[in-house]
């Protein structure tokens, strides 16, 4: 597989932010088999990793990293011990670090939400 410079850039950034080696994944799909949210996702977790391996920047537009709740079921299931949630977080962070907010605070009705929901959500979804 030949990666061009921009492919390598995305791959490198995700690996740097997550501290993970994307090629440690051999695409067995156990992460996706155990993920409780695949029904809502546009890409399966293993497909997200595959796109990262290929340096495919379209992964930054995917819904999956924003549905992932860092529940870590993939993390305990991975036979290679890969931290899949950290890869999801790296993809989110690439957007968040450009001052992007996935959740629009100006329009959010927080009246019935407990602090624990707001703190966790805003930590993961605002830049």
């Amino acid at each position: 597989m030949n990666l061009n410079e921009s492919d390598k850039q995305l791959l490198g950034k995700v690996e740097e932010l997550s501290g993970e080696n994307a090629f440690s994944c051999y695409q067995c799909g156990k992460c996706s088999a155990g993920c409780p949210f695949t029904e809502e996702m546009d890409l399966l977790p293993n497909q997200v990793i595959r796109k990262v391996q290929m340096g495919d920047a379209s992964v930054l537009e995917a819904e999956t990293p924003w549905i992932c709740a860092s529940c870590l079921s993939c993390e305990v299931d991975c036979p290679k011990g890969n931290d899949v949630p950290a890869i999801m977080e790296a993809i989110r962070e690439i957007s968040l670090r450009e001052n992007f907010d996935e959740v629009n605070l100006n329009e959010l009705d927080a009246s019935d939400l407990p602090e624990i929901a707001l703190v966790s959500n805003l930590r993961k979804k605002t830049g």
Partner: peptide, 13 residues
Amino acid sequence: NNSLLDLYPELAR
């Protein structure tokens, strides 16, 4: 108790 967070949800950041 939620009044402050309701009006200023950015507190949670």
